[in-house]
C-alpha cells in the first residue's frame, strides 16, 4: 500500500497540477484574509462600521467574542481551500480516464480497491498539505491583525487549537469527496463542474433556503445546515459552539459520514467497472 500511495503522489508531483492549484489557492487565501480582517473589525467594534444595535443578536455577540474572532482568522482560507483540495481529488481520479492511464494503473495493480484506497490517502495527504501551508500563514498573520485590533493572540485558548484541528479535518474530508466525485463522474469537465456547483450553489442555496424556512417554521430549521457539507465544514471551524447553531462535533460527524459514504460507493463502482 505504501508503494501505491507513493506512486499516486508521484503522479501528482510529475505534472503541473499541484503548483497550478497552489498558485490558484494563494490569492484566494489573501482575498479571504482581507474579508476576514474587515469582518473581525466589524465584529469587535460593531458601532464603528455602523451596525445598528437592533441587529446585534445573541449569535452576533457570540461571534464577536475574542476567541471566536480569532478562530475565524486562524482558520482563514477554508472556503476556497477545501474547494481546491476537492478539485485536486477530482483530478486525481479523472486524469486516469482523461489521459487513458487507467489501463496502465489497473494492469500494474489489478486489486482495484487498493488503487482507490491509495488515491484516497494521496488526496488526503494533499488536503492536509494545503491545510498546513494555509494554517502556517494564518499563524503568522492572524496575531498581527488581532494585536492591531487590541486583542491578544488567543493562542493560549484550547478552542483555537480545536478550531485549527477541525479545519484540518475539513481539508482532509473534502479531498476525499473529490475522489468520490471523480469516480462517480468519469468525465473530467463534468466532474469538476458538478463538484464546483455542488459546493458553491449548495452553499449559497442552502443558506438562502434555510433562512427562508427558519423564518417560517422556527429556528430549529437552522440545525439542517448540518446536512449541507459546505455549511457543516464551516461549522467545524468556529471557535466555540455558537448559539442557534448545531454543535461543532455534529458538523464533523456528518462530514465523516459523507466521506465514508462517497469513499465506499466510489470503491464499489471502480471494482465493477469495465476499463476500456
Amino acid at each position: 500500500m505504501t508503494s501505491l500511495v507513493r506512486s499516486e503522489l508521484l503522479k501528482i508531483r510529475t505534472t503541473n497540477t499541484w503548483w497550478v492549484f497552489g498558485l490558484l489557492a494563494l490569492p484566494l487565501w489573501g482575498l479571504t484574509f482581507l474579508i476576514n480582517y474587515f469582518q473581525s473589525q466589524a465584529l469587535l467594534d460593531p458601532a464603528s462600521v455602523g451596525v445598528p444595535e437592533s441587529e446585534q443578536n445573541a449569535q452576533f455577540q457570540a461571534a464577536g467574542e475574542h476567541v471566536n474572532v480569532a478562530a475565524n482568522l486562524y482558520t482563514n482560507g477554508q472556503f476556497f481551500g477545501v474547494l481546491i483540495v476537492m478539485l485536486l481529488g477530482v483530478i486525481v481520479v479523472t486524469n486516469e480516464f482523461f489521459h487513458q492511464t487507467a489501463t496502465t494503473t489497473f494492469l500494474t495493480t489489478p486489486r482495484r480497491t487498493s488503487v482507490v484506497v491509495a488515491k484516497l490517502i494521496a488526496a488526503a495527504v494533499l488536503g492536509v498539505l494545503f491545510w498546513v501551508v494555509t494554517t502556517g500563514l494564518n499563524l503568522i498573520l492572524a496575531p498581527l491583525i488581532l494585536s492591531s485590533l487590541d486583542v491578544g493572540s488567543q493562542l493560549d485558548q484550547g478552542a483555537i487549537w480545536q478550531a485549527i484541528g477541525l479545519n484540518g479535518l475539513a481539508y482532509l474530508l473534502w479531498s476525499v469527496f473529490g475522489i468520490g466525485f471523480g469516480v462517480l463522474i468519469r468525465s473530467q469537465i463534468g466532474a469538476t463542474v458538478t463538484a464546483l456547483l455542488t459546493y458553491l450553489a449548495g452553499y449559497i442555496g442552502a443558506i438562502i433556503v434555510l433562512s427562508i424556512l427558519a423564518d417560517r417554521f422556527g429556528d430549529w430549521i437552522n440545525n439542517l445546515q448540518l446536512i449541507v457539507p459546505a455549511l457543516a465544514s464551516q461549522l467545524m471551524a468556529t471557535g466555540t459552539d455558537l448559539p442557534g447553531t448545531p454543535p461543532r462535533w455534529a458538523g464533523a460527524a456528518v462530514m465523516v459520514a459523507y466521506a465514508v459514504l462517497t469513499g465506499t460507493i466510489g470503491t464499489l463502482i471502480v471494482r465493477k467497472r469495465d476499463i476500456s
Partner: peptide, 14 residues
C-alpha cells in the same frame, strides 16, 4: 494496449 496511455504533461521517464 493503447498508444496514448500516458499523461500528456508528464515526461516519458516519469
Amino acid at each position: 494496449l493503447e498508444a496514448s496511455s500516458a499523461h500528456k504533461g508528464r515526461t516519458g521517464i516519469n
